[in-house]
């Protein structure tokens, strides 16, 4: 058994040379991880609405079928919106990837165990919901293939990435929701963002 993956290194690898990738970051540590990799107008980080990240990603994926959409969230956030896996599995957006950074903890509230620490298998849930790719990722050698799939494979894709539970240095994105929304739209839509 190798050492658990470092969440910051995983996210940095996913977002390196991201080009046209559209990103939604779930609240808490995944949003900080994305900020640590470099704040970007085409990343929409959440500071609330827990459980919504994957559905925001699906609305975006349906609206932008020519772009790749990546949702990076945590195990607690995914568990709160677990029914979304059924909805996404039924809809099958081909350009949507979900990456769940699974540290088996609620990191923002005192590191209490989540249900994945007690045997709930998120990748198996996604597979049972009809995701054509639903994998657990636990070794460094698996990160590059995951990135390749996020950018090109026919989705919806689900990756449950087992990461360590250690704390990372704070790296906070902007938290003004209106700004986060509008900078994303301007970067994606240009002048149409003001319609």
């Amino acid at each position: 058994m190798s050492a658990p993956l470092d969440r910051r290194a995983v996210v940095a690898a996913l977002l390196e040379r991201r080009e046209t990738l559209l990103v939604v970051a779930g609240l808490g540590s995944p949003a900080w991880d994305c900020a640590a990799a470099g704040d970007h107008p085409l990343t929409f980080p959440l500071w609330g609405a827990m459980g919504s990240a994957s559905m925001i990603g699906m609305g975006l994926a349906l609206a932008q079928p020519e772009r790749r959409v990546l949702v990076i969230t945590g195990d607690g956030e995914m568990l709160m919106g677990l029914g979304s896996l059924a909805t996404i599995g039924a809809q099958r957006p081909r350009n949507l990837a979900l990456v769940v950074l699974d540290n088996e903890r609620y990191g923002e509230t005192g590191m209490q165990e989540t249900h994945t620490a007690r045997g709930v298998d998120l990748a198996a849930v996604a597979q049972a919901c009809g995701f054509p790719v639903a994998r657990r990722v636990s070794a460094p050698v698996e990160i590059a293939p995951m990135r390749g799939a996020v950018l090109e494979a026919s989705g919806p894709l689900f990756f449950q990435v087992k990461v360590g539970a250690g704390a990372s240095a704070p790296a906070l994105p902007p938290r003004d929701g209106g700004y986060l929304k509008q900078r994303f739209r301007e970067a994606l839509l240009g002048s149409d963002a003001l319609r």
């Binding site: 559209l22 939604v24 929409f44 609405a49 459980g51 919504s52 990240a53 994957s54 559905m55 925001i56 990603g57 699906m58 609305g59 975006l60 994926a61 349906l62 609206a63 932008q64 919106g81 029914g83 979304s84 059924a86 909805t87 929304k181 994303f184 739209r185 994606l188 839509l189 149409d192 963002a193």
Partner: peptide
């Protein structure tokens, strides 16, 4: 499968135009 999913979906749709 539950209504709150639609709030997120609508937000994502708007992000995407």
């Amino acid at each position: 499968t539950s209504e709150e999913q639609g709030i997120g979906l609508a937000a994502g749709a708007w992000l995407g135009g």
